[in-house]
Design a protein around this nucleic acid. Structure first.
Lengths: 234, 234
DNA sequence: AGGAATTTGTGCGTATGTATC
DNA sequence: AGATACATACGCACAAATTCC
């Protein structure tokens, strides 16, 4: 394994799965691939993967049936799905994560972005993400212009993955996360709490549809403390 | 491993440790032996033991410090110690386990008992054990007659181990549990709920003091359902 | 202060048991 | 009954944190 990562493999794997469940890419009742296949696909050992799955089971997100398979659990929408986030903040009320759409604009793709999609234009979606009322991250998502003529802010639900699937018939089949270092995005709202230490890093996502066509490119900025919270699963 | 046991090794090991904590043989703050030593002593692999220890940590009974050791956690008496039992019943109120002393009598040791202690007489203690108001088990304990001249029912606290330690200066250093099949004890109270299925088995305990002198012999009968509850840690 | 020894954490591989299909 | 898939158990190697001298 690479030694660049600060977090152990089983935690990163569990975190990744939790994100995909919370985002709607893995739906309730869905069955995961066999552990051996899944481990081989992830490039990790079965034992390590099993430790991740045990974590998800402990959180009530997964049901493991011997001889049958691992199934995404049907969780009551408002409470269970975001247990991951709730647990990390744990400031009493159990606040839910929200996503306020700041702006949606169709414009030319940025040159800094990797090539994705067929159109030279894209829908630029900027969101302010909060957890339990506390601002947690800024997010910029690019959706390929060929996917939709126009995207209304009111169309975007809390989960972009669900919007893609229900409105665009687009299924995100792969997500890559890379953690690096960045500065504050220039479109930061005036009331964004810069003082909490928003200097740490960002997550860069490139999503592909089932035909291996890039349809989404996104970057998420977050503040220092949130990074650490999200990173720590246990 | 032996195939006679219905429960996996890691569960039996965790159960055994939990009992010793709840009974007071392992005190708060105490440090366990290194995992490798402990595993060798138990005749199991380190990985299996670690699974048991992780279980105890998840219950809040143990604190594991990398590079340092495993420490019994200081739990608030009335609530935390019996988490094991509370969890298994989980019928709302979180009832605590209790032990009502039915009788204490000094008499000749039974011939069926294994040899223990130096005296030919012993104190026969019979207790009715309940969890959350529900009768759970019958218990017969024999304490060697040489240990005390007289034992008053009022002396016996909820935990016999604590009574031994505080009143008799006797430290139980080893406990053996064997599960077998037995019939209902002949001294069963008339109101004991035989109907719930009290036909299953018993636990036989032989305790030794630090000088390797047997000082206690006990048998515990329990009903079917309780057995299964106690047995299932997860 | 610092380096060696100790102790738990992580990760991998493998073999076997057991439940399910 | 056979195949599939998860559960248990063991062992080893190395990393990371702590403790001790």
């Amino acid at each position: 394994m690479s030694t660049l990562h600060a977090l152990p493999i089983y935690q990163r794997t569990a975190e990744q799965l939790i994100r995909e469940i919370a985002a709607g890419r893995l739906l309730a009742g869905e069955r995961l691939p066999p552990e051996r296949d899944m481990a081989a696909q992830l490039g990790i050992s079965v034992g390590t993967l099993r430790k991740s799955l045990a974590d998800l089971e402990a959180r009530g997100l997964l049901e493991r049936r011997q001889g049958s398979g691992n199934y995404i659990r049907n969780v009551p929408d408002a409470t269970g799905i975001y247990a991951f986030f709730r647990l990390e903040l744990s400031d009493g009320g159990g606040g839910l994560p929200t996503a306020d759409v700041l702006s949606v604009k169709r414009c030319m793709k940025p040159s800094a972005a990797p090539p994705f999609g067929q159109s030279s234009e894209g829908h630029r979606i900027r969101r302010l993400r909060s957890v339990g009322g506390r601002v947690a991250a800024l997010e910029e998502i690019w959706l390929d212009g060929g996917r939709a003529e126009k995207v209304m802010p009111s169309d975007l639900s809390e989960s972009l993955y669900l919007y893609y699937r229900d409105c665009l018939g687009l299924v995100i089949s792969r997500v890559e996360d890379r953690v690096g270092v960045s500065s504050v995005p220039p479109w930061r709202p005036a009331d964004f709490p810069l003082s909490v230490g928003f200097t740490a890093g960002y997550v860069e996502r490139i999503g592909f549809d089932q035909d291996a066509f890039a349809a989404e490119y996104s970057r998420t900025w977050f503040d220092n403390t949130t990074v650490r919270y999200v990173a720590r699963l246990n």
